[in-house]
C-alpha cells in the first residue's frame, strides 16, 4: 500500500516535471531555441494564479482564476517573443540560451518583489481532500495532476501532427528559409509557440502550487525538467512526459530505498547515462550531421 502511494505521488511530481519539459520541447520543436527560463515561467504562472485566487490577494473564484492565469501567461510568452526574442532572430542559439537565463533571473526578482520570498500555497477547492480506494489513500490534487497532464500531452501531440498550424510550426523549425518560401509567417509562428508554451507553463505551475507550496526560487525545478526532456529526447512530446515520469518516480523511490544522498543525484545520473548510451534520448529524433 505504501509503495502505491509512493508511486502515485512520484507520478504526480513526474507529471509536473513532464509539463515543464513539455514547455521546453514545444519551443525547441518549433524554433530550435531552448528556453532556460521555462521553470521561471512556470513559477510566474503559479504566482499569477495565487494572486488571482488567494484570499490575501484578489480572491477571485478558483475556476475563474485558472483560465485568467493561463491566458495571462500565454500573452506574456507571446509578448516576450515579440518584443525581445524577435530582435535575436538569426543569432546563434548560445545567445538565446544566455538571454533566457538572464531573463529567468529578472522574473525571479519580480516574483520575489510582488509576492515576497515566503512559500505560499494555492487555495484550491480540492485542497486536502483524499480518496480512499480500497485502503490506498490518494490525494485528489495528485490524481488531477496526472489526468490533466495526460490530456494536455495528447492534445498537444494531436495539435502538432494533425492541425495545419502545428505542421507549420514543425516546418518553421525544420528549415526556416524553406518555411518562408512556403508562405509560413515564421516570426508570428514563433511568437505563437512561445505563447502556447507560456500557457503550458502556467498549467504546470498551477498544478504544482495546488499540490505544495511555491516560492520564487521554484523555477530551479526547471533544471530537473531539463533532465526529463533530455532523457525523453529533446523534441519529442511523449518523450518529455516519459522523461518527466522517470525523473519523478526515481526520486521518491531512491529516497526511500536507496542510501542517503542518492535521490538528489539519481535524476542527473540517469541523464548522464542516457546521454552516454542513447545520446538522443529515449525517443531519439536526432541524427548525426552528415556532409
Amino acid at each position: 500500500m505504501d509503495a502505491i502511494q509512493l508511486i502515485v505521488s512520484g507520478l504526480a511530481n513526474g507529471c509536473v516535471y513532464g509539463l515543464i519539459a513539455l514547455g521546453f520541447v514545444l519551443i525547441y520543436k518549433a524554433t530550435e531555441a531552448v528556453n532556460f527560463a521555462q521553470g521561471d515561467f512556470m513559477m510566474l504562472g503559479a504566482f499569477l494564479c495565487v494572486g488571482f485566487t488567494n484570499e490575501a490577494y484578489l480572491g477571485l473564484p478558483f475556476w475563474a482564476a485558472v483560465p485568467l492565469a493561463i491566458m495571462a501567461m500565454a500573452v506574456f510568452g507571446y509578448l516576450f517573443d515579440m518584443t525581445i526574442l524577435r530582435r535575436m532572430f538569426g543569432e546563434s542559439q548560445v545567445a538565446i540560451v544566455i538571454l533566457t537565463i538572464a531573463f529567468g533571473f529578472v522574473l525571479r526578482f519580480i516574483a520575489g518583489e510582488v509576492w515576497t520570498h515566503e512559500p505560499v500555497s494555492l487555495e484550491t477547492p480540492f485542497a486536502g481532500e483524499f480518496i480512499n480506494l480500497g485502503g490506498v489513500v490518494l490525494d485528489v490534487s495528485e490524481i488531477l495532476i496526472v489526468i490533466v497532464t495526460l490530456l494536455l500531452t495528447g492534445v498537444l501531440y494531436l495539435f502538432f501532427s494533425r492541425t495545419k498550424l502545428g505542421v507549420a510550426m514543425q516546418a518553421a523549425s525544420q528549415n526556416q528559409l524553406a518555411a518562408y518560401y512556403m508562405g509560413i509567417p515564421v516570426k508570428r509562428i514563433q511568437s505563437l509557440v512561445w505563447g502556447l508554451s507560456g500557457a503550458v507553463a502556467a498549467i504546470a505551475g498551477i498544478l504544482f502550487a495546488s499540490k505544495g507550496a511555491i516560492d520564487p526560487s521554484a523555477g530551479l525545478l526547471g533544471i530537473k525538467a531539463f533532465a526529463a526532456a533530455a532523457i525523453g529526447g529533446f523534441g519529442s512530446l511523449p518523450g518529455a512526459l516519459v522523461g518527466g515520469l522517470i525523473v519523478g518516480l526515481v526520486e521518491p523511490i531512491a529516497a526511500r530505498y536507496g542510501p542517503v544522498g542518492v535521490s538528489q543525484i539519481a535524476p542527473y545520473a540517469i541523464l548522464i547515462l542516457v546521454l552516454i548510451f542513447r545520446p538522443g534520448g529515449i525517443f531519439s529524433q536526432t541524427q548525426r550531421k552528415k556532409v
Binding site: I223, I272, P279
Partner: peptide, 25 residues
Amino acid sequence: LPVLRLHGVYLALATLAMSILTGDF
C-alpha cells in the same frame, strides 16, 4: 565526450547536470 557528437544544447545540459551534482558528490 559522449555529448560532443550531439547538438550544442546537449553539452550545455550535461555540464549543467554536472554542475548541480558537484555539491552532492
